[in-house]
Nucleic acid binder design. Structure first.
Lengths: 115, 115
DNA sequence: CTCTTATACTATACTTAGGGAAGTAGTTAC
DNA sequence: GTAACTACTTCCCTAAGTATAGTATAAGAG
C-alpha cells in the first residue's frame, strides 16, 4: 500500500473526494450500527440541516456506498444502509477514531483556537 | 476502539474536524515523504490555489500537526514538516489508499457521474 | 541596464458549498 | 381543527474555495 502518488487516479485522492464533504464520515458512521431512517440520522447528527443530509445521502447513493429503500407505510419511511463497498470504510473510520483519541490524549483542543 | 458515539467530544468527530477541509489530507500525504517547501507543495498539488494552501498550512500548524520553519535565504524559503502527532495520521492515510483501491477495483467512477 | 526567474505569499473578485428557516403533502392522533 | 409525524424541497445568506494578479527582493542572462 503506497500513500504517495501524484496521479489524478491516485487512490488517496479518490478516497478524499468521497470523504472530504462535511458530515459525510459522520453519516457513514451512523450507518455502521445498522440501517437508519432519514429522521433517525437527522436526530443522531444533531445539527445537520435537512438540505445537507439529503444532498449527502444522494451523493453516497450515487457512488454506490449506501442504498435507499422507500416503504409505502403511513407515514412513509425511507431506510438507508451501507453497501459492501460502504462497509469497506470501516478501517478508515477506525483510523479516525484512533487519531481522535490521540488528539484527546495530547490535550489538543481542536475547537477553541480561532478567536 | 469504538466507532459509534454521539458525544461532541467523540474521537471520530474530532478527527473529522481536522480532515474534512478540502486538500487537507493531500497536503499531509505530501509531507509523509519528508519536509517540503511551499512551492514544492504547490507544484505537487497541481490545482490548489495559494490562498487555500496558506490557510490549510496555518490551520495544521495551529493544531500542532505540522511545523513551519522560515529561512532567510534569498529568495526566502519555508519548510513544512509533520510533527509526531501529524505522523499519527499514517494509518488514516493508509486506510484512504486502501479504500481508494477498492473503488478502482469495483470500477466505480468517482468523478464522472454528475452532468 | 533591463528582462526574466524564483520564492512565499497577500489582495481582489467571483463561484460553489453549507447553514437556517420555512414550506409541502398525506395521514392520524387529540 | 389543530398539531404532529415523515421525508423531503425551496429560499436566502454567509463561509469556503477558485482564479488571477500583484508584492518584495535579488540573482543571473543578454
Amino acid at each position: 500500500m503506497e500513500i504517495s502518488c501524484s496521479k489524478d487516479t491516485c487512490p488517496v485522492k479518490l478516497a478524499a473526494e468521497i470523504i472530504e464533504g462535511k458530515w459525510t464520515t459522520l453519516i457513514i458512521r451512523e450507518l455502521f450500527s445498522g440501517k437508519k431512517r432519514y429522521s433517525e440520522l437527522q436526530r443522531a447528527l444533531n445539527k445537520i440541516s435537512p438540505k445537507v443530509l439529503s444532498a449527502r445521502l444522494k451523493f453516497l447513493e450515487e457512488r454506490g456506498l449506501i442504498t435507499r429503500a422507500v416503504f409505502a407505510t403511513i407515514p412513509p419511511t425511507t431506510e438507508y444502509a451501507l453497501t459492501p463497498i460502504g462497509y469497506k470504510l470501516e478501517s478508515l473510520l477506525l483510523a479516525m477514531a484512533e487519531f481522535g483519541n490521540e488528539l484527546i490524549k495530547k490535550e489538543i483542543n481542536v475547537k477553541i483556537i480561532s478567536p
